[in-house]
Structures are given as structure tokens and as C-alpha cells.
Design a protein around this nucleic acid. Structure first.
Length: 484
RNA sequence: GGCGGUAUCGUCUAGGGGACUAGGACGCGGCCCUCUCAAGGCUGUAACACGGGUUCGAAUCCCGUUACCGCUACCA
């Protein structure tokens, strides 16, 4: 068996959608798993809708996910000459014929048919024309399209995900392959390109199932070797409808901006419509996915995009990834949020890594880390009123506690076990559990109700910042006591 | 309308005639751990669309119904 060649063939009419990303991923995974090639073909022949900007968005999305293609990008628009030549070959070999029916006429006949019998199918009237008449009308400059003459019988194939699918040819009309202006129609262009690119497995969305018999007939008429086909199910939104902008973030770039990691996105997408089977750990690296990927695990049913699970998946990858890989991402986001500069964080590398280690376990996205990192980066904190209302309920009491904490901490070596010993001793002399100390301290030091463990907070914050924040809290509590 | 595709917990799925009192994961609830929040551990909730067959035996095979999705262009 020759090595498989697959392609992802998006039309550049928007951003890279998660559905398209998954199609690309499965193609890529299959190629990697079987030592084949993964190619990218931009289907830009719809000049009205294609833009360079969306072509770039597709490249960026694929690059971000790590789905690199193995050969130079193929632009479909550059191959119209070959498409046309293939269509004309079909005309010459008698597999296709000229049709002089105008679009307006066809439109009218279609409307009439729909009003009466329902379905409209081209009646092949131009196939009755004799050769001389066709030649005369062409010579006279009358515009015509080229239609493929669909043969009798059935057209079917063994789909890698659906097993066997077949269509009675009588339900397929003699479809146009060349427009009157000489440009190719989609099915012609795709088939011509897939043949030229030596694609052995056409893996795409199942919205292409009804195009497949037409393409198969084209392969046969052109005498080209038949590839295999695999039709992947769609991805739906939480309401079961096809995923669209209404459902929120549907572009992979949206998730990138929300702090989702590419490896988490890949992992999540891989499990939408595919399963390695049996029991397995759902959190997998890209290499594990490649090793396990198998067309037999492809599902037939549409899947709902569950953002909750994506976020959980991201949290898992956040904890498992190398700190050296996470640090630059976090630095960039923190800098973008204006909390520190990248170079400053880089200089405090060891300290920053300690902080990340503390935060990533309680974060689901990189953006969560940025939010949680704030108290450790800014000069002074603002108090979350909910947190203050609870932990500083009795302002005078909280003040007294914080004064004692400040006095104790001021004379202690800044090291976790020493700090712990000192604070536990303080709690004991005051006849309270150490936990009673931490609530008020947490608000004073971070402004929040939640944070990493108290001793970790103290160490990461450092002596000076800690004492300054305690002093600031005491002042604030004075104000609160006065008001009450 | 015609043609095609699909149908297991709310969601992602395992399952491919008996191992199914249908398993796992997310979510949700409870408990444990615990200075808070997470993480982690344990645990609970919850599904084979419906109706006929085939078979000693169907979630698994066949047919029909229903629902949903896709296609039905001189779009891609």
C-alpha cells in the first residue's frame, strides 16, 4: 500500500471554524499516524466571497494548533486551466455534452416543476441536439455550459465512517461541470485537483455526501484511480443546531484569545466524533493522539460542542504542561493586561515559576492565571467588598488581629516553616485556631476571598509587600471602624 | 417535496447477539482532605427515540414510524 495523501480544503470565506479545524485535525492525524502526507488546498474559486484575510486566518489557526501541511499550499484558483482541460476531455470522450439552456430558462422550468410534480431534474433536452446543430450554435457564438451525462445504474462507495453508501443514478441530474464563461464548477474543480494532487483519502464533512457520487462518476469518466472517502459528522451548538456565531466562540482564534491552549483544543476536538475505544484517559498529548488515531474509531453522529468540557480539558493540560512552556504564554498575557512587563517577569523567572505553580492548579484558562496573578504583581490591592464584608465583619476585631499579625511577622525570618510556626503560636496565644487568622489576612494581602495557601502567599508576596499591605489594611479598617 | 445520513445519561462517549442490575468522562449533588478557592480521592443523579420482526436470547441484526441534520444552483 502506498502512503496515504490527504488534504484539508477550506474556502477562505471567514475565520477557521472549530468544525473546519476538526476536519483538518482528523486529516492531519490520519496522515501522521500512517506516515502519509497532509496537504492544504485553499478553495478560492468563489472570487466574490474569498478574501486574503480569511486565507491568512486559516493559516494562523492551523499553525496555532500545530497542524502543519507537508507541501506548498495549493490555490485552487491557479488551476482553472487544468479544470477546464479536464472538462473538455470529458466533452471529447463523450462523457459530457453542451447545453444551451439559459439560466433564466432553467430557473423558469424549475419553478414550474416545483409547483407541479415537485422535484426538478434537468430533462437532457440539449443531449438530443445533433452534432451539426451544436457546432453551428457554438460557431455562432451562442453561450453554452458543459453538462456531465450521468450513466444508468447506481453509484456507491465504502465510506470509512459510514460503511456503504449508494445513490441511484436516476436521482442525479446531468450536472454542469463548466459554466458558460468557461470556468469550472465545484465538483469538477475538486475532482480535478484531488486527482492532480494524488489524494488517496478524501476526508471531509458529511455535508459533502451528496457530492460524492458526482465526483466518483467524474473519476471514472476521467479514468483516474479512485480514492477512499470518509465523511465526518458535523459539530453542533448546545441547542443541537449547526454551530454558528450565535453560539458564541466558534472560531479557533476566539478560544486562543480566551486563554485556551492549542494542545487542549486539539485534544478536545479529537474526542468530538472520534474515540480510541474502550476505557482510556481522555487527557492526551498530541503524540498520544497520533499513536491512537484510527479511522475505525470515527463516529457517525453529530457532536455538540461542550465549552464546559473544553475548559476542564484546558485545566488538565495547564497542570500537566511544562512550566517552561507555560511561562512565556502567561508572561505575554500578563503584559497584555498591563500588570507587568515581559522582561520584568523574565528577570524574576524563578519567582514567577513559583507563582505559576501555585496558580495553575486553580485555573482553567491562561486568563484565569492572569486574574489570579494580579495581587502578586501590582503595588497595592483593592478589596473585594464581598470578601471584606465576610472576613472583616467585625472591623475592630479584624484590625486588632492584623496588628498582631504584623507585629509577629515583622520579627520572623521570611521562610515558610518559620512563618508557620510564628503564626500558629500567635493564634494559640490569642486562643483561636490558626484558620481564624487567615481569613482577615487573605483579604488584607490579596483583596480576595480566595487565594493559594497562606504560607505560599506570604512567601511569594515577600516581606516588604506583606508588611505594607497589612499596614494599608489596618488603615482601611480604621476607616471602617469609624464609619460603623 | 425528492434523495441521502443519523439516533445510548443534559453533553462527549464505551458497547459491535449472551460478560449489561448498560461502563467511563464533563456537568450537577454529597462526603473526605482542608486556612479559603482549586486540585485530588470516594460517592450519588441520569440513557439504549418508538413500533414491529429475526433469534433460545437483542443497546447490538432487519423493516417501518418519528425526530434531527445535510444536499437538492451556470455556490463552494
Amino acid at each position: 500500500m502506498t502512503t496515504p495523501r490527504l488534504r484539508f480544503a477550506p474556502s477562505p470565506t471567514g475565520y477557521l471554524h472549530v468544525g473546519g479545524a476538526r476536519t483538518a485535525l482528523f486529516n492531519w492525524l490520519y496522515a501522521r499516524r500512517h506516515g502519509g502526507q497532509f496537504l492544504l488546498r485553499v478553495e478560492d474559486t468563489d472570487k466574490a466571497r474569498s478574501t486574503d484575510e480569511s486565507t491568512r486566518a486559516i493559516f494562523e489557526g492551523l499553525e496555532w494548533l500545530g497542524l502543519m501541511w507537508d507541501e506548498p499550499v495549493v490555490y485552487q484558483g491557479a488551476n482553472v486551466e487544468r479544470h477546464r482541460a479536464d472538462a473538455e476531455r470529458l466533452l471529447a470522450s463523450g462523457h459530457a455534452y453542451r447545453c444551451f439552456c439559459t439560466a433564466a430558462d432553467l430557473d423558469f422550468r424549475r419553478k414550474v416543476a416545483e409547483a407541479n410534480e415537485g422535484a426538478f431534474k434537468y430533462d437532457r433536452r440539449c443531449d438530443q441536439l445533433d452534432r451539426d446543430e451544436v457546432a453551428r450554435r457554438v460557431a455562432a457564438g451562442e453561450p453554452s455550459v458543459v453538462r456531465f451525462r450521468v450513466p444508468e445504474g447506481n453509484t456507491g462507495w465504502t465510506d470509512l465512517v459510514h460503511d456503504s453508501i449508494s445513490f441511484p443514478n436516476k436521482d442525479i441530474e446531468d450536472f454542469v461541470i463548466l459554466r458558460s464563461d468557461g470556468t469550472p464548477i465545484y465538483n469538477m474543480a475538486v475532482t480535478s485537483d484531488d486527482i492532480a494532487m494524488h489524494i488517496t483519502l478524501v476526508m471531509r464533512g458529511d455535508d459533502h455526501i451528496s457530492n460524492t457520487p458526482k465526483q466518483i462518476m467524474l473519476y471514472e469518466a476521467l479514468g483516474a484511480p479512485m480514492p477512499q472517502f470518509a465523511h465526518l459528522p458535523m459539530i453542533h451548538g448546545s441547542d443541537g443546531k449547526k454551530l454558528s456565531k450565535r453560539h458564541g466562540a466558534t472560531a479557533v482564534a476566539d478560544w486562543q484569545h480566551e486563554g485556551i491552549l492549542p494542545q487542549a483544543m486539539v485534544n478536545f476536538l479529537a474526542l468530538l466524533g472520534w474515540s480510541p475505544g474502550g476505557e482510556f484517559d481522555e487527557v492526551m498529548s498530541i503524540d498520544e493522539l497520533i499513536a491512537k488515531f484510527d479511522a475505525a474509531g470515527l463516529r457517525k453522529t453529530a457532536a455538540v460542542f461542550d465549552t464546559k468540557k473544553l475548559e476542564w480539558m484546558n485545566g488538565q493540560h495547564l497542570v500537566r504542561m511544562a512550566l517552561d512552556e507555560l511561562a512565556p504564554l502567561a508572561r505575554r498575557k500578563i503584559a497584555a493586561a498591563g500588570l507587568a512587563t515581559e522582561s520584568d517577569l523574565e528577570q524574576r523567572g524563578a519567582w514567577f515559576n513559583t507563582l505559576l505553580e501555585l496558580l495553575r492548579v486553580r485555573a482553567r484558562t491562561v486568563d484565569d492565571i492572569v486574574r489570579q496573578a494580579k495581587p502578586f504583581l501590582v503595588a497595592s490591592v483593592e478589596y473585594d467588598e464581598h470578601a471584606a464584608a465576610k472576613a472583616w465583619k467585625d472591623a475592630a476585631d479584624a484590625r486588632a488581629l492584623l496588628v498582631a499579625v504584623r507585629d509577629t511577622l515583622a520579627g520572623v525570618a521570611w521562610e515558610a516553616t518559620a512563618l508557620e510556626t510564628a503564626l500558629k503560636a500567635l493564634a494559640e496565644t490569642r486562643g483561636i485556631g490558626a484558620g481564624k487568622l487567615f481569613g482577615p489576612m487573605r483579604v488584607a494581602l490579596t483583596g480576595e476571598a480566595n487565594s493559594p495557601g497562606m504560607f505560599d502567599v506570604l512567601v511569594v508576596l515577600g516581606r516588604d509587600l506583606t508588611l505594607a499591605r497589612l499596614a494599608a489594611a489596618i488603615v482601611d479598617l480604621d476607616r471602617r471602624t469609624g464609619v460603623t
